[in-house]
């Protein structure tokens, strides 16, 4: 009797638990919280932005205006923003994908001294507030002859540069700020990947008489390939999303728009100028650009292929 009671009591929960634990259902249970937050906080706003991109939105007077927002996008300011952002993406990708590999390899080598110290030093910038970091960079690269950067180039006999007012140096400032900030994070990714490279491969390479560089290019790099693909992808996406790197130097109006990024353009038009429809249209275009470029990049690196083909 007593035993029967017990089994009766636990029958219900058991069934539920079994259901939730079943191989088919369990995965969905685990990703359920993410799906909810994704749908509410990301997917719904994205759809809404898509709808808004066909509207003219003013308090109490929202109306559909067809493609007029998209037609307005093709203007010189947008081209400038697109050009700036693309240049920025290319430069940051080249720097942030390649340099950290070498740094990680060096830090990982058994000859490196104080490697913990260097790891920490490289990583700390990513924890710094970009507003604070940007202020420091702005002062380092001031326009007067007494600013740090101008003093340094002065030792080599170079005339002071108006860092924040020239097109090439503006790009340089944004790229250097971003590189300084994210270098350590990418080094960490690579360092983690390096731990998975089997030591036997290096040993056998040694036996075959490979030198340091051959070991690096024929053993280390192939093993890092998945991570390289990953770092490239996030570098591209982060590059196209660039906003703060420009904001800290010029806020929203850079001279001659030399620091204008696509997101910056979206922000000034959509939020500051309260032209949400146009801002939304820009956002949709930016998503498409990133999507297409990521597809191309992942196809080229073979990330979509299965297995080890």
């Amino acid at each position: 009797m007593g035993q029967e009671m017990k089994s009766n009591i636990y029958k219900g929960p058991n069934r539920l638990l079994t259901f939730l634990n079943s191989k088919k259902v369990a995965p969905y249970v685990f990703i359920f919280p993410f799906i909810i937050s994704f749908t509410l906080l990301t997917f719904y706003p994205t759809i809404q932005a898509f709808v808004m991109s066909f509207q003219r939105i003013l308090p109490g007077q929202t109306e559909f205006v067809g493609l007029s927002n998209y037609r307005r996008i093709l203007n010189p300011t947008f081209y400038q923003a697109f050009q700036n952002t693309t240049t920025y993406v290319i430069l940051t990708c080249v720097i942030l994908v390649t340099v950290p590999i070498f740094l990680a390899a060096m830090l990982n080598s058994k000859f490196a001294k104080f490697s913990t110290f260097y790891r920490a030093s490289l990583f700390i910038p990513s924890l710094a507030s970009i507003i604070v970091a940007g202020t420091v960079f702005r002062l380092l690269f001031g326009e007067t002859g007494s600013s740090f950067a101008n003093q340094v180039i002065g030792w080599f006999g170079v005339e002071p540069i108006q860092w924040q007012y020239t097109s090439w140096s503006a790009m340089f400032l944004m790229v250097i700020l971003s590189s300084w900030r994210w270098m350590g994070v990418n080094v960490m990714y690579y360092l983690a990947a390096l731990q998975n490279v089997p030591l036997e491969l290096y040993e056998s390479a040694d036996i075959d008489g490979a030198n340091v560089f051959q070991k690096f290019f024929y053993v280390t790099v192939p093993h890092l390939k998945p991570i390289i693909t990953f770092v490239t992808t996030i570098s591209i996406i982060n590059g196209f999303r660039m906003f703060e790197e420009s904001y800290v130097f010029w806020e929203t109006n850079s001279p001659g728009n030399i620091g204008l990024s696509m997101i910056g353009y979206m922000y000034t038009q959509g939020v500051q100028r309260n032209d949400m429809g146009f801002g939304a249209a820009l956002g949709v275009i930016i998503i498409l650009i990133i999507f297409v470029i990521s597809i191309i990049q992942l196809n080229l690196t073979g990330a979509f292929k299965r297995g080890d083909e």
Partner: peptide, 24 residues
């Protein structure tokens, strides 16, 4: 597949630690 990938791109664009815009 393309649709799933588009969603993934959106996630990556939307997330990714944006300190300055979130703070303050």
């Amino acid at each position: 597949f393309s649709f799933v990938f588009l969603l993934l791109t959106i996630v990556l664009i939307a997330c990714g630690g944006n300190g300055a815009t979130e703070s303050g």
